[in-house]
């Protein structure tokens, strides 16, 4: 299938189905491993790490949509952004539930102490709380209702992604290679949003794919 400026409704349905399958694979993997005793000696740690990792991956994938669209001129990419964002939130919920239930077993005093005293828990918790309004306003009618404020609100995702990486960074004992990798990806995705760079990217995309944008359309 060549990459075209427009997708047929059928193509959109298939693409979304594929994306669902990809996004559910990490959860499926945990279930399969759990049933086979493949989560290792410390299953709770395994689940916590895995759901945390996929939250970060989901956030970065969501943030990659706009730059990719600008680079390629494929406007339909934007149609998958909400799904990616909601999957990031889904894994964040699993991650947080794992912590509350499996790790702390709903011990309120221990959780409160952790959130106040442990900086890495504090920032992780803040990131999770900040994600909630974004997930709650993800639907089309909320977008219309909030107007310009919707975009203002959803700019919080930059802060959330940053907090998520700090959360990971402060957790590791010494080997920061993984959090560093995520930080680099986030940095690239943010730099691509700088107005001047974005402007030239958009111009290039227009030249490369003139059919993608009819006169008067907005990018």
């Amino acid at each position: 299938m060549p990459l075209t400026a427009r997708l047929t409704p059928r193509q959109i349905i298939w693409s979304k189905a594929l994306l669902w399958a990809i996004c559910l694979a990490p959860l499926l993997r945990l279930v399969v491993l759990g049933l086979n005793g493949g989560l290792g000696a410390n299953p709770i740690e395994f689940i916590t790490r895995s759901t945390g990792t996929w939250t970060l991956v989901g956030l970065l994938a969501t943030l990659a949509v706009t730059p990719l669209r600008n680079l390629s001129g494929l406007n339909w990419l934007i149609r998958f952004r909400r799904l990616l964002g909601l999957f990031a939130f889904f894994y964040a919920c699993l991650h947080f539930t794992t912590y509350l239930w499996l790790d702390q077993f709903f011990d309120p005093s221990s959780i409160a102490r952790d959130i106040i005293k442990r900086p890495f828990i504090t920032v992780g918790f803040a990131a999770f709380i900040l994600l909630i309004p974004l997930a709650a306003t993800s639907r089309q009618h909320m977008m219309k209702k909030l107007g310009r404020n919707w975009q203002r609100l959803h700019r919080l995702v930059y802060v959330i992604a940053g907090l998520g990486i700090v959360h990971y960074w402060w957790l590791v004992k010494k080997d920061i290679s993984q959090p560093l990798l995520y930080a680099c990806v986030l940095a690239v995705l943010l730099v691509m949003r700088l107005p001047r760079l974005q402007h030239s990217l958009l111009a290039r995309a227009r030249d490369a794919a003139p059919r993608s944008c009819k006169p008067g359309c907005r990018e």
């Binding site: 410390n42 709770i44 740690e45 442990r118 890495f120 957790l171």
Partner: peptide, 14 residues
Amino acid sequence: RWSQAKERRIGEFF
């Protein structure tokens, strides 16, 4: 960065 008050004995839930 973290508490040392408790530990998870490998193989135990609590």
